[in-house]
Simulated scan of single mutants.
Amino acid sequence: MSNITLGGNPIETTGTLPAVGEKAPNFTLTATDLSPKTLSDYEGSRLVLNIFPSVDTGTCAQSVRTFNEKASELENTKVLCISKDLPFALARFCGAEGLDNVESLSDFRTGDFGDDYGITFKTGPLVPLLSRCIVVIDADGTILHTEQVAEIKDEPNYESALASLA
């Protein structure tokens, strides 16, 4: 389990992120049109998983905006913005913001993604949401980079995540 903080107060997650060099665990998430999406749907593409508690918070929303801007510069790379928000909320946010370089996916149905990646909050006021993390996966499904943001209110290290794709 990982120990992170919210406003300096300790919070635990259900596990730890998969290690760099490992194959990414498969997942089934829900797209904004309510269709299922699995890791194999993105086979052959590089992926940046931008994982966060809720798009309705300032830091989470900013991470989606920032990756949307930077994603347009990346070849053969898809940015998947993942939370337990309902697909309708994710679609509304991206539509209102004009964000079309990212894809929003939800773990609201089963929570298996958060458990398989070890990032579901186990303690604290945000149980059972997902902690703020970045996972970068190459076109063969191997993890190139991970970051679990130590303080939930902080933004991820965008530059480090994107540099792993160079």
Rank of each mutant, 00 (worst) to 15 (best):
residue 125 P to Y: 00
residue 129 L to E: 02
residue 76 N to I: 11
residue 121 F to R: 03
residue 71 A to I: 01
residue 73 E to D: 12
residue 108 F to A: 11
residue 96 A to Y: 10
residue 122 K to R: 13
residue 104 S to R: 05
residue 123 T to K: 04
residue 81 C to D: 12
residue 133 C to Q: 06
residue 83 S to L: 09
residue 98 G to N: 05
residue 120 T to H: 08
residue 114 G to M: 11
residue 142 T to N: 10
residue 98 G to S: 03
residue 125 P to S: 01
residue 67 F to S: 07
residue 62 Q to W: 08
residue 138 D to T: 03
residue 73 E to Y: 08
residue 106 S to C: 14
residue 110 T to M: 09
residue 113 F to P: 10
residue 92 R to L: 13
residue 62 Q to D: 11
residue 113 F to I: 12
residue 79 V to L: 03
residue 106 S to H: 13
residue 133 C to P: 10
residue 124 G to H: 00
residue 78 K to I: 12
residue 103 E to D: 11
residue 75 E to D: 15
residue 64 V to F: 05
residue 100 D to Q: 11
residue 111 G to Y: 12
residue 146 T to I: 01
residue 117 Y to D: 00
residue 127 V to P: 00
residue 60 C to H: 04
residue 81 C to M: 09
residue 92 R to T: 15
residue 144 L to C: 05
residue 94 C to Q: 12
residue 82 I to H: 05
residue 74 L to V: 10
residue 113 F to N: 13
residue 106 S to W: 12
residue 146 T to L: 03
residue 75 E to F: 09
residue 78 K to N: 10
residue 80 L to E: 06
residue 104 S to I: 02
residue 107 D to N: 06
residue 92 R to D: 14
residue 128 P to L: 01
residue 102 V to E: 05
residue 97 E to K: 13
residue 115 D to E: 14
residue 126 L to G: 00
residue 146 T to N: 05
residue 74 L to C: 12
residue 147 E to M: 03
residue 148 Q to P: 01
residue 111 G to K: 13
residue 136 V to T: 14
residue 90 L to M: 15
residue 67 F to W: 05
residue 116 D to H: 11
residue 113 F to C: 12
residue 123 T to I: 04
residue 113 F to L: 12
residue 60 C to W: 07
residue 107 D to L: 03
residue 85 D to K: 15
residue 76 N to W: 11
residue 68 N to T: 07
residue 112 D to Y: 12
residue 62 Q to A: 14
residue 87 P to F: 13
residue 91 A to I: 04
residue 105 L to P: 10
residue 71 A to V: 02
residue 146 T to F: 05
residue 64 V to L: 02
residue 83 S to P: 09
residue 110 T to W: 12
residue 100 D to A: 12
residue 61 A to Q: 02
residue 109 R to Q: 15
residue 77 T to S: 04
residue 88 F to T: 04
residue 113 F to S: 13
residue 63 S to R: 12
residue 136 V to C: 14
residue 137 I to Y: 01
residue 127 V to E: 00
residue 137 I to M: 02
residue 129 L to H: 01
residue 139 A to F: 09
residue 138 D to M: 05
residue 89 A to H: 06
residue 112 D to P: 10
residue 105 L to Q: 09
residue 71 A to F: 02
residue 125 P to A: 01
residue 96 A to D: 15
residue 127 V to G: 00
residue 128 P to D: 00
residue 130 L to R: 06
residue 79 V to W: 03
